Simulated assay, not measured.
Amino acid sequence: MARDTGARWAVLNGLWTFGVRDFDELLDAAGPYTMNGVTGLIRCPTLVLEAENDQFFRGQPQRVYDELTSVKELIVFREDEGGGEHCHEGALFLFHQRTFDWLDTVLGR
């Protein structure tokens, strides 16, 4: 954490979010938060978004998408579009456009 500001932020934010005092408590508190056994229960149309270079959740959107049995779509935001980072920072207009286009399609408008 002394050298990696991203790791420092993630741990400090996690401590604050979960209201715990140290890293061990954070691991215990975060442990139950998993999609294991949940994705197969989702029945509604689902949009999964992935950032090509996501530093926090690389590969997880594809894994969720693969496990879904509902109607689904995966949109990958690429670095060359400006949306390759976590939360598609740098391409929020593109993120909004693709998300609302998907909603329009799914909701039948």
Rank of each mutant, 00 (worst) to 15 (best):
D101V: 12
E85G: 07
G31K: 15
P45M: 09
G84V: 03
D28Q: 14
N36V: 15
E89L: 14
G108C: 01
Q62E: 13
G14A: 03
Q62L: 14
A2D: 15
V71I: 10
P32N: 06
D66S: 08
D80P: 00
L27S: 04
R43D: 11
D66C: 01
Y65L: 02
A51Y: 00
T17C: 10
L74F: 03
A51R: 03
Q62H: 11
Q62I: 12
D28P: 03
R63D: 11
D101N: 14
E79R: 11
R3Y: 15
A29V: 10
G83T: 09
G84S: 02
R109I: 08
H96T: 12
L12Q: 15
V11F: 08
D66L: 01
L103Q: 07
D101Y: 08
T105V: 07
W102V: 03
L107R: 12
G31W: 09
A30S: 13
V76L: 11
M35C: 09
G84N: 01
P32I: 02
L47D: 00
W102K: 00
L94S: 04
A30R: 09
L47G: 02
R8D: 13
A7V: 12
Q97Y: 10
G84A: 04
M35I: 06
R98G: 01
F57L: 15
K72M: 01
Y33D: 04
L26S: 03
Y65A: 00
R78Q: 07
F23T: 08
G40Y: 05
T46M: 08
L74V: 00
I75E: 04
Q55S: 11
L92S: 08
W16I: 06
V48K: 03
A51F: 02
D54H: 06
V106Y: 01
V38G: 05
H96G: 08
K72D: 00
L74A: 02
G37Q: 07
G19D: 02
E25F: 07
E79W: 06
G90H: 05
T99K: 07
R43E: 13
S70L: 06
V64Q: 06
V20C: 00
C44M: 12
D66A: 11
V11S: 07
R98H: 05
P61H: 07
F95C: 03
N53W: 13
I75D: 02
L68G: 01
V76K: 03
E50D: 12
V38H: 12
L107W: 09
G31S: 14
M1D: 15
L103D: 03
R98N: 00
